[in-house]
Amino acid sequence: MSQVSGAGLVVASRVPGRTADPSLVDGVRARLARRGTPPTDADVTAAVRAAGTVLGSRALAELGTAVRAEVLGAGPLQPLLDDPDVTDVLVNAPDDVWVERAGRLERAGVDLGTAAQVRELAVRLAAAGGQRLDDASPTVDARLPDGTRLHAVLPPVAGGCTLVSLRALRQRAFALEELVAAGAVAPGLAPVLRALVAARASFLVSGATGSGKTTLLSALLSLVPGDQRIVCIEESGELTPDHPHVVRLLARGANVDGAGAVGLAELVRQALRMRPDRIVLGECRGAEVRDVLMALNTGHDGGCATLHANTARDVPARLEALAALAGLDRAALAAQAASALEAVVHLRRDGGRRYVAEIAVVRRDGSGELVVETAVGVAPGGVPVRAAGWAALARRLGA
Rank of each mutant, 00 (worst) to 15 (best):
R143C: 15
R353A: 15
A331N: 10
D26K: 12
D96M: 13
R104L: 06
A324T: 10
R364Y: 02
G366A: 04
P145M: 03
A326R: 04
L328E: 12
G75E: 04
G130C: 02
A287G: 09
D301K: 02
P225T: 01
A186G: 10
G352K: 01
R18W: 14
V185K: 06
V71D: 06
D21M: 06
S211G: 03
A175D: 14
P225A: 00
V224Y: 00
R119M: 12
D134F: 04
R107W: 13
A251Q: 03
D134K: 03
A392L: 15
V99M: 10
G368Q: 09
V292A: 00
V345L: 05
L272I: 05
P84W: 05
T19D: 12
T114N: 04
L63N: 03
P225C: 13
Y355Q: 03
G129N: 09
R18F: 07
R229V: 11
L105W: 11
V197A: 13
E106S: 11
R285S: 03
A201W: 11
A116S: 08
R313V: 13
D242T: 08
A190Q: 14
G207F: 10
L281S: 05
G226A: 15
Q228G: 09
P384V: 10
A312R: 02
P191L: 07
R278C: 09
G389F: 07
G6Y: 09
A387H: 13
A152L: 01
V157N: 11
P22I: 08
L239M: 02
A181H: 14
A50T: 10
T214K: 06
V378I: 02
V376K: 11
G260L: 03
